[in-house]
Write a protein that binds this DNA or RNA. Structure first.
Length: 440
RNA sequence: GUGUCCGUAGCUCAAUUGGUUAGAGCUCCAGAUUGUGGAUCUGGCGGUUGCCGGUUCAAGUCCGGUCGGACACCCCA
């Protein structure tokens, strides 16, 4: 039933089965990333990964599925991530597991379980991949999303690590030219935070009646989040609330001062946000976020207690993660990925016999390491060249009956229309030379 | 999870307010005397109007449910 020439009518395609209610649809909060959007995501991920490599981080992979208990212990029993956003389920064997909602607990687990401290201290690792949170979806908020995450685990709680972590992520935004402001804060440690917490609770208890409903609840569960409330009443109250920065113990205060000094040395501008509190329990001392108009694009901080919460010996750590999807949103659909020039060669045929030669020629080129594009299934040379043009390719090879006969091919500069015939034996060499030129 | 709004071709939108066979632009495909791209012209593919049910002589249009999306809360990447 193949069409051999334009004279033979094409048989009508068979009727498609009607759409049924059982037609699969993507699940709530899940989406397909295709075409230009994929290229954008891949580019962002690549820029981020390269930055991490440059800052001495080594790439690793950790499982998408972990024991639910890991997140309950690691991320915090009362955090939203654990109480309402976890994709938790029971396996056939009865194990309680969850899709990872963040990277840090999994990496911390791997660090301990695989004895990574024996590989040198501190360990600088990074990873990238999908995370899952059972949120109500909204623009810029999906149930599956991609992050690039970097952590410095082990060694000492040196503020230079905080600064270097910030620097690595800062560079990603600088490279991508995404305008962000770096917000930073210190939330103290075991020594000074409980005291501050008491002061804060005492302050808010006094004004309990002015608090919104949620904040009344927060007062019991997670008082630090009170500072983050957007209700006008609560916002006003916070102006006179005690600030953590004023209550830091001297080691924390010194630590934070050093972080700020290192950032200044690195030429990284940041703004102090005394109300910055992150949603995870394990943070202490430095916390930071890279904020854009559309929201937070990356965030992280120090977590010196997480590892021992998981049963390890005390192990300080600092880390951060950036959201690929959000950054793609911030760059916009029209963002031109820099330095992305097609370097494939187009192969076209004219006539059935030539088609076979063109196919063979493609294979030769690919073997020689030259990427090939074609539209060999199309009959007219016109339609084939149209495809070459649409793909923006600089070179097209044309094989017709004559060329098939004398073992040659035409090289056509798509842009100028200039073309020249070469024997097959010299094609690879000539194409390589011209592709090199066209890239400059 | 709560509240509000929205679902018509792959995309952006029409359809005289309940009335014949749901249209257009873009995209895609094919042609314009069969071996040469971008322009133009011509034609074609593409929809059980998200899905299920109800009201009605008649539903894309009204009602209910459901699924999906957007906005706010919440939270965060």
């Amino acid at each position: 039933m193949r069409r051999v020439s334009n004279d033979v009518p094409v048989p009508a395609p068979p009727p498609r089965p009607p759409k049924q209610e059982g037609m699969p649809q993507s699940v709530k909060g899940m989406r397909d990333i295709i075409a230009d959007r994929f290229a954008l995501h891949a580019y962002i991920e690549e820029v981020a990964k390269n930055a991490m490599r440059a800052y001495q981080f080594t790439e690793i992979d950790v499982p998408v599925v972990e024991a639910t208990r890991l997140y309950q212990r690691g991320s915090g029993e009362t955090t939203d991530i654990v109480t309402k956003e976890l994709y938790a389920f029971e396996t056939r064997g009865g194990d309680k597991v969850s899709l990872r909602p963040e990277f840090t607990p999994g990496i911390a687990r791997a660090y301990v379980e695989r004895g990574m401290s024996r590989m040198g201290l501190p360990q600088r690792v990074f990873t990238a991949g999908p995370l899952f949170r059972h949120d109500k979806p909204q623009a810029g908020r999906y149930r599956q999303f991609t992050q690039v995450d970097a952590e410095i685990i082990g060694g000492t709680s040196d503020p230079v690590y905080d600064a270097q972590t910030v620097a690595a992520f800062y560079r990603v935004f600088a490279t991508l030219k995404v305008p962000v402001t770096l917000e930073i804060n210190s939330i103290g440690d075991r020594v000074c935070r409980p005291g501050y917490r008491k002061l804060l609770v005492a302050y808010y208890e006094e004004h309990r009646k002015q608090l919104c409903e949620d904040c009344t609840r927060r007062l019991e569960t997670n008082p630090l989040r009170l500072l983050d409330c957007k209700e006008p009443g609560c916002k006003k109250l916070r102006e006179n609330a005690p600030k953590m920065l004023d209550k830091l113990c001297s080691p924390c205060s010194a630590h934070f001062t050093e972080v700020m000094e290192y950032l200044e040395e690195l030429g990284i501008p940041c703004s102090l946000n005394p109300y910055l509190v992150r949603g995870l329990d394990y943070y202490n001392r430095t916390v930071f976020e890279f904020v854009h108009e559309i929201g937070s694009l990356a965030g992280g901080g120090r977590y010196d207690y997480l590892l021992e919460t998981l049963g390890s010996r005390p192990t300080p750590a600092v880390g951060a993660a950036l959201g690929v999807d959000r950054i793609a949103d911030a760059l916009g659909d029209r963002y031109q990925i820099p330095g992305k020039k097609p370097k494939a060669v187009f192969v076209a045929h004219a006539g059935e016999k030539a088609k076979k030669c063109a196919l063979a020629l493609s294979e030769t080129l690919i073997s020689a390491g030259i990427p090939v594009r074609d539209a060999l299934a199309k009959d007219s040379l016109k339609a084939q060249l149209k495809t070459a043009d649409k793909d923006g390719l600089p070179l097209a090879l044309i094989v017709g009956q004559k060329e098939a006969f004398d073992k040659s091919a035409i090289i056509r500069e798509v842009r100028t229309g200039l073309q020249e015939s070469f024997p097959i034996s010299r094609i690879v060499e000539e194409v390589k030379r011209r592709l090199k030129d066209s890239r400059e």
